[in-house]
Simulated scan of single mutants.
Amino acid sequence: MNKILVTGATGQLGSAVVNELLQKVSASDISVLVRTPEKAADLKAKGVTIIKGDYTDYASLVAAFKDVEKLYFVSSSDVMNRFGQHQNVVKAAVEAGVGHIIFTSVQRKSEDGTSPVALIADAHWKTDDLISRSGLTYTILKHGLYTDILPMFMGDKVIETGTVFLPAGNGKSSYASRNDLAAAGAVILTTQGHENKVYEFGGPVSYSFHDIAEILSELSGKSIQYVSPSAEVYAEQLKSYGVADEMIQGAASFCVAIAQGEFDFPATDLETIMGSKPQSVKEYLKAAYHL
């Protein structure tokens, strides 16, 4: 097996990908790029090679990417500086002669700056374009919204309160769990036939929050309603609960984007790559809320 390198391996997605890989290949075939090696002590103990590097340190990237056959490139968490960091990664991959780059992009409808989450999404489509023109062999994984964000949006008391309160209108999204996305990523890293392809990694069915409230009602045996306020009323309500402005703005922006159909891309690519059914929204919510 040729050498695999995973970036962002101490983050939730990167670490999940490495754990999936460890079930498929020898730890000696896996390297990880991390900013803080101490945080990867558990991976080191399993025999994974730990390389210190940073998206802002170009020389560290070139050195890390030498002899790498497959690079799993997790998008930067630094929203304000994301595209510049991504440019470093792609340029370094070209210079180092990486065999195949696999990038964790996002599903989106708009690429003209009009999306309510343009600040977050635009760096991804620009990176997709950069990679496709780089000369590198690539696979672009257009991840749907994580199912994992639903409890974050709805809160841990949604069953008790009986209300999903979000400014998402009637918009639908094709959610996929982080674990399933990681499993699919590991398959792509260890099999052939994915060269120069773009995969839509949303779930097979799109759901509105009306649908999600119905699912929660069915699972809990209680009547859960969905109320969609304006983004302004939503922000005022959360502010009264003492929620930080940054969190309110982030959640509101995503919900308004959902209302506009920015993430409504149901697809079967995830099931095809995994070779099994992805976890459904219902299955995820049942586990998340212990129902």
Rank of each mutant, 00 (worst) to 15 (best):
G53M: 02
G99S: 06
F83H: 05
H100W: 00
V62R: 00
A184T: 14
S217A: 06
T190G: 04
V6W: 03
V18Y: 05
D211Y: 09
N179Y: 12
A259I: 11
F153L: 10
G155Y: 10
S174V: 14
I248Y: 02
V62L: 00
G47D: 14
S134W: 15
A93R: 04
S206K: 08
S253W: 10
A287C: 13
E262I: 11
E200M: 08
E236W: 02
D128Y: 08
G8C: 01
L238V: 12
K239Y: 01
E232V: 14
A287M: 14
G193Y: 08
I101H: 04
Q279W: 01
V256L: 07
K142D: 04
D57E: 01
D245F: 05
R178M: 15
S276R: 15
Q12R: 11
V243F: 06
K44H: 06
I159M: 08
A9D: 05
P266Y: 03
E160L: 13
V158H: 01
F165H: 13
G47N: 06
K44A: 15
A257C: 04
A45L: 11
M80A: 15
D264Q: 03
A213R: 02
N81R: 01
L136K: 05
L181I: 15
D269G: 13
D128F: 12
F65D: 02
I140F: 05
I149K: 00
E218F: 15
P116C: 09
L189W: 11
D54Q: 06
K222S: 07
F263S: 07
G144E: 05
E111Q: 08
I101M: 00
G221L: 08
D54K: 03
I101A: 03
Y234P: 13
N19C: 00
V62K: 00
V25R: 00
I224T: 12
G202T: 14
L141A: 07
S75N: 08
Q85E: 07
S228E: 09
E236T: 13
D129L: 10
A183H: 10
L141T: 12
I273M: 02
Y199F: 15
T272R: 14
T191W: 00
I273A: 01
G221K: 06
K142T: 04
I258A: 01
D211T: 12
M152G: 08
S276E: 13
S240W: 05
L130F: 12
V243C: 02
N81W: 04
A267M: 07
T104V: 09
V48N: 00
S75Q: 01
S28M: 03
D128V: 10
V32I: 15
K44D: 03
Q225C: 12
K70M: 06
A244G: 14
Q87T: 15
